[in-house]
Amino acid sequence: MKTTEAVAELEISRPVSAPAPSLIAQVWTIAGKDLRSEFRTKEALNASIAFSVVILVLFSFAFDPTSDQLQEFSGGLLWLVFSFAGTLVLNRSFSRETQNDCLDGLLASPMPASALFLGKSLANYVLLMMIEIVSLPVFGLFYNIRWARQLPMLAAVLLLGTWALTVIGTFFSALTVNLRIRELMLPMLVYPLMIPALMAAMTLTTVLLGGVPITASDMIWIKMLVAFDVVFTTLSVFLIDTVLLG
C-alpha cells in the first residue's frame, strides 16, 4: 500500500480527529449546494429573468422609449431592473431552507453561521450576475443603447454594485426568515438600505453607458461602492450569528 493511500485510509477511519474543513471550503460547499439546487429547478432564475424583461417592457410606457434623453437616466433604469429582479432570488435564499427544517440542519452542522451566510451570498451573487448578463443586452436592444463601449469599467461597476445588493439582500433574507409577514417586511427594510450603493452604481452606469470613460471626479463613487461592500460584508459576517442563532 502506498503511503498516501495509507494516510487517506487513516483519516477516513478517524473521523473525530479529522481536521475541520477551512472556511473557504465550507463557503464553497454551501455555494455549490445552493447553485446545484437552483440549476436543477431553475425556478428563481427563470422567474427573475422573465420579470426583468417585463419591467423593461413596462418602462417603455412610462416615457418615450425612442427619446434621446433616455441616455441620461439609463443607469437608473438598469439598476432598478437589477434590484427588483434580484430581490426575487435574494428573498428566497433563506426561506427556501425552512422546508423540512433544512435551516435547523444547516445551523446544527459544525459550520459557523458566517460560512453559511457567505456561501449563500456567493451563490446569490452568481445568480444575480446571470440575470444581469441577460437583461443588459435586452435593455440595450429595446432602448437602442450601445452598452458595450466601456465594457471593462462597466463590468467592474456591475461586479461591485451587485455584491452590495447581494450582501444586503442575503442578510435580510436571513433576518426575516422566521417572520410571519416576511414578504411585506423585506422590501421595506432592504430597499432603503440599498440606496447608497444604488446611487453610486446608477451614477457610474449612466456615465459608462454614454460611452464616456470615468473621470477623476466619478472615482469617488467607485470608492464609495468599495467602502459599502467592505463595511456591510464585515457587519453582516459579524452579526449573522446574532440573527440566526441568538
Partner: peptide, 23 residues
C-alpha cells in the same frame, strides 16, 4: 435581537447616505 441589528445597519447606512448625498 433583530431590531438591534436593523438599528445598527440603519445607522451605518445613514452615514453612507449622508456622505453620498453630499456628492
Amino acid at each position: 435581537r433583530l431590531s438591534a441589528v436593523v438599528s445598527i445597519f440603519g445607522t451605518v447606512n445613514a452615514w453612507f447616505v449622508y456622505k453620498a448625498i453630499d456628492w
